[in-house]
C-alpha cells in the first residue's frame, strides 16, 4: 500500500478499463487497428487516424528506464528523495511512474535498465503501475 497523500486518479468512461485492469494486476494498453501502433494514455479513438478502430490489449509489463529524476523537495504522499521516472514499455509507449524496490540513487538507477511492472494499491479502488528492476536482469 502506498503512503497516503498522492492525488488519486478518478476513472472516467474512457479510462475505466485501464484502472479496472490495474486493480487486477494487468497493464492494459490500446492499439490503433489502422496502424497497429500501441498508444497511451487511454482514449476511445486512434491518435494516428482518428477512427474508432481501436482495441484494448494486455502489455507484457516489461520496460526500460527511459529517464528519471530524484526529487528532493516535499510533495504530499512522498518521502523525498524519491525517483519519478519515464519508462519505455516493450510495446513502445512511454509512461510516467515511480521506481520501487531499488535505492533512489543515481548509482542504482541506470538509464535503459530493465524493469517490470509492480502494481501497488493506493486503496481498495486504485492500483498504480509502478516499476521495479527486473529480477536477475
Amino acid at each position: 500500500m502506498l503512503e497516503p497523500g498522492r492525488p488519486k486518479p478518478k476513472p472516467t468512461p474512457e479510462t475505466k478499463h485501464f484502472w479496472d485492469g490495474a486493480k487486477q494486476g494487468k497493464l492494459l494498453l490500446q492499439r490503433c487497428g489502422d496502424t497497429g501502433k500501441a498508444y497511451f494514455p487511454p482514449r476511445p479513438f486512434s491518435p494516428y487516424t482518428g477512427t474508432r478502430n481501436v482495441s484494448v490489449f494486455e502489455a507484457s509489463g516489461r520496460a526500460t528506464l527511459h529517464s528519471y529524476v530524484i526529487h528532493h523537495r516535499p510533495v504530499p504522499g512522498f518521502t523525498p528523495p524519491y525517483a519519478i521516472a519515464v519508462v519505455e514499455l516493450e510495446e513502445g509507449p512511454r509512461l510516467m511512474t515511480n521506481i520501487i524496490d531499488c535505492p533512489q540513487t543515481p548509482e542504482a538507477l541506470v538509464l535503459d535498465m530493465q524493469l517490470e511492472v509492480a502494481f501497488t494499491p493506493m486503496d481498495d479502488d486504485i492500483s498504480l503501475p509502478l516499476f521495479r528492476p527486473t529480477k536477475g536482469a
Binding site: K8, V69, H71, R73
Partner: peptide, 11 residues
C-alpha cells in the same frame, strides 16, 4: 491522472 499521482512537478 497518469502523471500527477507519481509526483510530477514542474521542476
Amino acid at each position: 491522472p497518469f502523471e500527477i499521482p507519481y509526483g510530477r512537478t514542474v521542476a
